[in-house]
Design a protein around this nucleic acid. Structure first.
Length: 891
RNA sequence: GGGCGCUUAGCUCAGUUGGCUAGAGCGACUGGUUUACACCCAGUAGGUCAUAGGUUCGAGCCCUAUAGCGCCCACCA
């Protein structure tokens, strides 16, 4: 606490401390974080008998630096974690990083290529060494940046997907699945990224619209349309719809088709999937390079002819086109076809849907290949005498409510994806990742699984063994994240205590990639769910709703810059307040600055409180407070504090973080500071002042941990992070006093409005007269407060009285307020204002009366609502009367 | 083609199970050295709640349709 200096001043608590006028986050945050860490505050209390609370932090890719997506996730998870920790639950927020196979490899390849190197010239071993160095570097960067956000995660349990333990989990699961026969090797069409040189899972392919040419080609007896004429070299059939009369006679027949490499034979097949209305209704079938065509070929037992290889080039069987990329081949072949008169016509600007790699944007080539797959349809999970497939089980745990997704509309998306899931291709032809633990005996061709390098073949005892060259899909290991990080396959304390985890909090963009995979893997391996609640946050966008991108630095916000400039607390609030699960959030600097102002407001309320209490007051307990002399103002603020505590707790319990944050914000600024602190300048109960302030700091802590901890250093020697969360108190309910103080507040507000609307010099104090009716005693008691807050010289309070000449007036309930301002009143303005108010009040009375005459309303509306309306009617009739009298007196 | 979301003040957003005269922050405007805070205080202006129907005693909220914007999924060659 370097900036707090001591001064000597008599009497008050503040004799010992004086806080700087403005809070400067940079001077506190790092220091406080270190203090928490040193005290092991983030580690769960293993002795507590309460239910545990766990969040597995979605592991940021070990490839770069913190961005706003991380920032929002850290803010949300930290609030949840701190709240539960303060409630006394053993709380674990487990951090870690992911090796992010393809993403990392791509990044390092890019760095290498800048040096003129590539991974093949380097070789597998050296390349992996490079990647490791890169990862170690970015891991330490990310660790520090996670700390910058104030994340209270347990670093002693940090994990990395390539850790020994986690790798063991991966091998163990692979072996189990292999033995269960749900991991198998198959030769089939896969998504191939020619740039990454690897397969991709179906959901790792994204789609992009592009305008291009659509070629209508002469094809024996047909004319048909294609966007990929180069694949003609791999055609083995033409498909038509069985109901299509135009082609009925051709079905089942074979034709010789003229092509750029001479004639070739195709068969005409009938298939329902062909849309007769699209194109010419006839489709050329290239089974080796199109998923649709592959399916047709399977059904009709058509031969497969591969013409494109794994580098995206035409193969040897393509004659003079061999070695060309598909694009080169396309233009060459079209040119040749044109010469041969095989092109009917070419449509320009045709809208295509391209499949591209989600990591590098390269166009995907479907090619046939031998790969490892997970069978998602095989009934393998034994339960209740039935056997369920991975898919069925994954759907079941969401359907039966074991896992709740927030917002719930994502259930539907999840089911749809799961139901349509095909076998998951898990082998990747990259080097960075978990190597597939499969060994091939060169002697007897035995294939077997072994995590470590085996001595000899278990069958023929031969020693010539070769490990599979491929690595596993990165989502295979991250699918195990919630339990592999807790020590599985060992039966650890942590696993027992913290699994299944409580909340999985992540962006909705990885619902399929990750959430679905975790459910799939965990229900298989542990026969249990990985988490109870899924909380999905949205994307952080610019003020105008665009995606943030580094290429537009004027709207792209770097969280670390913002922390440096406004503090982590301000950034956290700007990401939380006004955002709800599943919806995108717009972020811009003014918003962060606004919350920085709020942080400063907290700080200054602390300054005020500390300056106005005695040293021992800061220890005030609820008993001390209840034993002290409580004024109406004290009872009002205690009631409100209690209401807010209860409501904020409820909101946090149901993960309504934004609502909870807004409520404390409004309470601290709009009620505690604007009203209670101002009133306390007239008359104060120091114990109440200290108590209410302390409790606000406590419930603020999960949202703004740094500034609250910094303030707490002057409250109590123990740290706030471990302070218990307050429980609402029945003894702190004073509804009568709450209503009374609301009247006082309204009177003050009315007088302020009257003054501001008049020509009176605002700096000058004025006099006021109040006809208080039945509230005379109350207003008398609070007259000093009214005088101060409304800036009055003299206040004359009577039960009732005659009309006041030359005065501005207002009515609060049945209370009349007059400001006699000789010569400073614009009577016409005053009349207009009164007329407007009368009109308003009359309209209201009429509408309420209408309601009360309505038998439907009386019959159907809840009693409280009817009662409230009756009371309001009385109130406004009273007010209307006063206003009318006033207007008449002005004539 | 299927599914989903959004539309409330100039801007960014709240608005609980339908029930006070629809709120906040920023911006604009008028003023302000008062026991902390000008990163502040007091006040003012600004809204046909996208449109059209419907349900209801009562709709920003529920239902139906339409429009605009956005997202996700899908093999239209």
């Amino acid at each position: 606490m370097s900036r707090i200096y001591k001064i000597q001043q008599k009497g008050y608590f503040h004799a010992m401390i004086e806080l700087a006028k403005t809070y400067t986050a940079q001077q506190y945050e790092d220091e406080i974080y270190k203090k928490w860490e040193k005290a092991k505050s983030f580690e769960p209390d293993m002795k507590s008998k309460k239910s545990s609370f766990t969040i597995s932090m979605p592991p940021p890719n070990a490839t770069g630096t913190l961005h706003l997506g991380h920032a929002i996730m850290l803010a949300i998870q930290d609030i949840m974690t701190r709240f539960k920790r303060m409630q006394g639950h053993p709380t674990l927020w487990l951090p870690g990083t992911d090796h992010a196979a393809i993403a990392t490899q791509n990044k390092v390849e890019k760095v290498l290529s800048e040096k003129g190197l590539d991974r093949h010239t380097l070789g597998r071993e050296k390349f992996i060494k490079e990647v490791k160095a890169f990862v170690a570097d970015s891991q330490s960067t990310i660790r520090n940046q996670i700390r910058k956000m104030g994340s209270s995660c347990d670093w002693s349990r940090e994990r990395y997907t390539l850790d020994k333990g986690l790798s063991q989990a991966v091998m163990e699961v692979f072996e189990r699945m292999y033995n269960d026969g749900i991991i198998y090797r198959g030769h089939r069409l896969v998504n191939w990224c020619p740039r990454c040189g690897s397969t991709l899972a179906d959901d790792e392919v994204s789609h992009k619209e592009e305008r291009g040419k659509f070629y209508w080609i002469k094809y024996g007896p047909f004319v048909l349309a294609t966007s990929r004429p180069e694949t003609k070299l791999g055609d083995t059939a033409v498909a038509v719809n069985p109901k299509d009369k135009r082609y009925k006679e051709f079905i089942g027949k074979k034709f010789m088709i003229p092509g750029v490499l001479g004639e070739f034979e195709i068969k005409v097949v009938a298939d329902e999937s062909v849309d007769p209305k699209f194109g010419s209704g006839a489709v050329k079938v290239t089974p080796a390079h199109s998923f649709t065509d592959y399916e047709i070929a399977q059904k009709h037992k058509l031969p497969l002819k591969q013409i494109i290889d794994e580098s995206g080039r035409m193969m040897k069987n393509c004659g003079k086109y061999a070695g060309m990329t598909t694009l080169e081949a396309r233009s060459a072949i079209v040119a040749d076809m044109e010469k041969m008169g095989l092109i009917d016509h070419i449509e320009q600007n045709y809208l295509h849907n391209l499949s591209v790699c989600y990591r590098c944007g390269t166009v995907i080539e479907p090619i046939p290949s031998k790969q490892w797959f997970i069978d998602v349809n095989k009934p393998i999970i034994k339960e209740d005498g039935k056997k369920k497939s991975l898919k069925e089980k994954s759907i079941e745990v969401v359907k039966n409510g074991s896992i709740k997704i927030l917002p719930s509309r994502f259930n539907k998306t999840y089911y749809h994806w799961m139901e349509n899931l095909k076998d998951w291709c898990i082998s990747r032809q990259i080097w960075w990742g978990h190597r597939i633990p499969v060994w091939y005996c060169q002697g007897c061709e035995k294939i077997f699984v072994s995590a470590d390098k085996p001595e000899k073949c278990p069958k023929c005892k031969g020693k010539k063994l070769k490990q599979d060259e491929d690595t596993l899909d990165t989502w295979f290991s991250s699918g195990l994240w919630t339990f592999s990080t807790l020590g599985w396959p060992k039966d650890t304390e942590d696993l027992k205590k913290f699994h299944p985890t409580s909340v999985m909090e992540t962006g909705y963009d990885i619902l399929f990639f990750w959430i679905a995979r975790m459910i799939l893997m965990t229900t298989y391996v542990l026969k249990d769910i990985p988490f109870k609640t899924v909380y999905l946050h949205g994307l952080v966008r610019t003020k105008t709703g665009e995606k943030m991108s580094k290429s537009k630095p004027e709207t792209c916000i770097d969280p670390l810059d913002m922390i440096e400039k406004y503090g982590a607390d301000a950034l956290r609030l700007s990401l939380i307040v006004g955002s709800s699960p599943g919806n995108d959030i717009r972020l811009y600097e003014e918003k962060i600055a606004g919350y920085r102002n709020f942080i400063n407001k907290i700080w200054n309320s602390a300054r005020y409180v500390f300056m106005n209490i005695d040293k021992e007051d800061i220890k005030a307990t609820i008993e001390d407070v209840l034993n002290s002399k409580l004024s109406r103002v004290d009872k009002w603020i205690l009631t409100r504090l209690n209401e807010v505590t209860e409501s904020v707790t409820k909101k946090l319990e149901k993960h309504a973080l934004s609502d909870a944050g807004t409520e404390i914000y409004d309470f601290l600024w709009g009620e505690f500071c604007d009203w209670y602190l101002e009133m306390s300048k007239v008359n104060k109960n120091k114990k109440v002042l200290a108590y209410v302030f302390k409790q606000i700091i406590v419930i603020l802590h999960p949202f703004v941990p740094f500034v609250t901890e910094a303030i707490w250093a002057h409250v109590d020697p123990s740290m706030l992070i471990k302070k218990e969360w307050p429980i609402p108190e029945k003894k702190l309910k004073f509804p009568k006093e709450k209503a009374e103080i609301n009247i006082i507040k309204s009177i003050i507000a009315e007088i302020r409005t009257l003054r501001a609307g008049s020509n009176v010099d605002i700096t000058k104090k004025v006099d006021a007269i109040i006809y208080a009716g039945k509230h005379e005693a109350l207003i008398h008691e609070k007259s000093e407060i009214i005088k101060k807050l409304a800036h009055l010289e003299k206040l004359d309070i009577r039960k009732s009285g005659f009309k006041v000449e030359n005065a501005l007036s207002a009515v609060v309930k049945d209370i009349e307020i007059y400001l006699p301002l000789k010569g400073l009143i614009d009577m016409d303005k005053e009349k207009t204002k009164l007329k407007k108010e009368i009109e308003n009040a009359r309209g209201l009375v009429v509408s309420i009366e209408g309601k009360l005459k309505n038998t439907g309303f009386l019959k159907n509306a809840p009693k409280e609502v009817v009662e409230r309306e009756k009371a309001r009617k009385e109130e406004f009739i009273g007010k209307l009367e006063k206003l009318e009298n006033r207007l008449n007196s002005l004539v």
